[in-house]
Design a protein around this nucleic acid. Sequence first.
DNA 1: CTGTTAGCGCTTTCAC
DNA 2: GTGAAAGCGCTAACAG
Lengths: 352, 352
Amino acid sequence: MADRTKPSPVNVFPARRPTIRDVAARASVSIGTVSRVAGGSARVAEATRARVLAAMAETGYQPNAAARTMRTSRTRTIGFLIPDMANPVFSRVAIGAEPVLSAAGYMLFAVSSNRSPARELAFLEAAQQRQMDGLIVTLADETHGPVVERLGRIGVPLVILDRDVPVAADVVYSDHARPIETLVKQMVAQGHRRIALITASEKIRPGRARAEAFRKALAEAGLAAEERLIRSRAQTAEYGAAEAHDLLTGPKPPTALIAGGNEIFQGALRAIRLLGLSVPRDLSLAGADDRVLAELVDPPITVIDRDMAEVGATAARMLLERLDGLDAPPRRVLLGSSVVLHGSIGRPKGKR
Amino acid sequence: MADRTKPSPVNVFPARRPTIRDVAARASVSIGTVSRVAGGSARVAEATRARVLAAMAETGYQPNAAARTMRTSRTRTIGFLIPDMANPVFSRVAIGAEPVLSAAGYMLFAVSSNRSPARELAFLEAAQQRQMDGLIVTLADETHGPVVERLGRIGVPLVILDRDVPVAADVVYSDHARPIETLVKQMVAQGHRRIALITASEKIRPGRARAEAFRKALAEAGLAAEERLIRSRAQTAEYGAAEAHDLLTGPKPPTALIAGGNEIFQGALRAIRLLGLSVPRDLSLAGADDRVLAELVDPPITVIDRDMAEVGATAARMLLERLDGLDAPPRRVLLGSSVVLHGSIGRPKGKR
DNA sequence: CTGTTAGCGCTTTCAC
DNA sequence: GTGAAAGCGCTAACAG
């Protein structure tokens, strides 16, 4: 039996979204009090609070975020810019960051730039106009002037992932040098003298760091770095396949190959398969950033592996510290990478 | 030489973000005129427009999205909810939707629910409070009451992806029946009588649709569907591995297996590898939604393939039509799936 | 074509 | 502990 003394929870005129004013009227309090209850902060008499909460439930009140932002200039929103959201290496970062941020009351919104600096600029502009409270950013090309400039003026806490950008922001980056060094050493120890590297463009830190580490490791092994064996222009599967094919069918082909980058790794595998080469008999191989693939192909391939969710969680924590008012010089956090060994690195042909 | 008649583009007091009022003062016009120029819509004298644009550039003016939303109730923002952003099957949808939406002036913000209905609810609430203009949604569990209920009241244009939800919204879904039918027919034609299916939970349409199609195809082939050979409870790699292992080591193991779902496919492959089974000699196999993996393992595996970017582009177009005011009953678009043939389906053991 | 003005819904003093 | 009131920055009438 319906209790006629209680107002019906069904609104007769639900066209307009209820505002703080509707709730106030229903609870017979002022809008200030409703605001205090909604905000949860200031002290309100228990009985009043209960009346207001009931009125909120009955009207289906939802605070208007735009109005809040008008007053407070805060949105409880973090933007996450990634070059390619379909690449798990990037999207896993979001998986790691999200729980940290949501626990602190922030929503994480991911945007994929599709590796286009123009889209990156559009994102930064949108983030600024929407007054996002903080940003986590992975650039497609850290040499792009307008993007870097805009990042410098962004005016909100910013964490940059694995890029060297001349901007006063916190950075989380991965150790690319150590795994390359490990792999080169292992290949050299097996007797390889002609080792090739395919990796991302040197316009982004990972490509640069891997190429540099590669040259250094070769030098330390007493081997002359042959620039023809270093390919670092792009990070697509197509690029990986094309360069692998070119390397392996060219004069004096390498006996060992490091495919740095998950898409490059896929492409290189395809080229190797197409050429009918057997790993590690015809070619020793190491990949990166795709353990699943590495372990399911035959034979399983030794891979560089990174915990991208940890990258995301770390970035989120650093951002929260800034949002909490931390005023410190830009910080840089280096996260380790590991090498997962499988049997894909053997002795070069003719040396067994 | 500096032209003293022009105001300096460097603000002496840049602490506060310039507003429409600052621009108006600098251009010696009213704020209404600045608004008209910013909005780009109404007609403004060419000379005035130029002055205003100059003043905007000089002050570095950025419209305040919250203030605009206050007045217009629109945000030019579309929310995209996915169960797992690290799964390319989902994130490719965003890659397809983004260009369509950005061309129409909308930003696409992706949020990963991590398959948690609670996070889904949090997303829907955030979207509503932030007054997102439209939503594209993939639910983790279409039977979850509160989520479905909230979706029903969402109040903005909504496109649902590949789920059966009792809500008046447009839907884009994939054809799961046809590829399953194709695969079963091919397996039966090769002489298989014991065919197994591992697929997602029947709490979501893909799992249900595949399981139903599977039963139907078996019946049409005159085979009794053995429920023990149908596993449809989850969609993780771990689940795929566990069920594949159980099926293949149990009594009367199947001679052919369909692993529906990209993660299940990965897990099944791992189990098969662990058991030392050879495809297609010991087992005929088909996978789904991971062409790269299917083509790089040895032997390459026949897979069900879908163009997820096309799903995204279609959803985006449908959403835009609604945003443009289309008032029509909920629409359902079915997008095709294909089967990419490789040699992983052969004759059952002992029948060759 | 342009200026003036009234709020959009909310938070936050400031009184009481 | 609660109410009243100002105003965040903008758009959209409405005048002129």
